[in-house]
Amino acid sequence: MIFLSFFKTLVGKEIAVELKNDVVLTGTLHSVDQYLNVKLMNVQIINPEKYPQLTALQNCFVRGSVVRYIQIPPEHVDTELLQDAARKENAPASAASSSAN
C-alpha cells in the first residue's frame, strides 16, 4: 500500500517507465492502481530511432506486470518521509518477531 500511496503523490508529474523489453516511455502520470498499473499522458518514447513502432502512441496505460523501473525526478520525492512511512509499515511485524525471540 505504501508504494501505491507514494505513486499517488506523483500524479501530474513527469515520470519515465522502463518496460521489461527495455523500451522506456516518458509521460505525465495520470493514475496508478493497486497493481501499480500506470497511465501516462502524452507519452514520448526514449530512443525513437530504436523503437519507431511506438511513435504513434499518445496516452498510454501500462500494465504493472511489465514494468521494470519507474524513474522519478528526485525533487518530487521526500526520502525522509518515505523512509519513515516504510518504518511505520513494518513496525508491527518486526515487534512481533523480536518478542518471539
Binding site: L19, T55, A56, C60
Partner: peptide
C-alpha cells in the same frame, strides 16, 4: 503490455524489425 490511443498518421512506414518481446 500496453493499451494506448494513437495518432493514425504517426505510424512509421519504414521497414523496421518488430518490438522485442517481454
Amino acid at each position: 503490455c500496453m493499451i494506448a490511443d494513437y495518432d493514425q498518421n504517426a505510424w512509421t512506414e519504414d521497414a523496421v524489425p518488430p518490438l522485442p518481446p517481454i
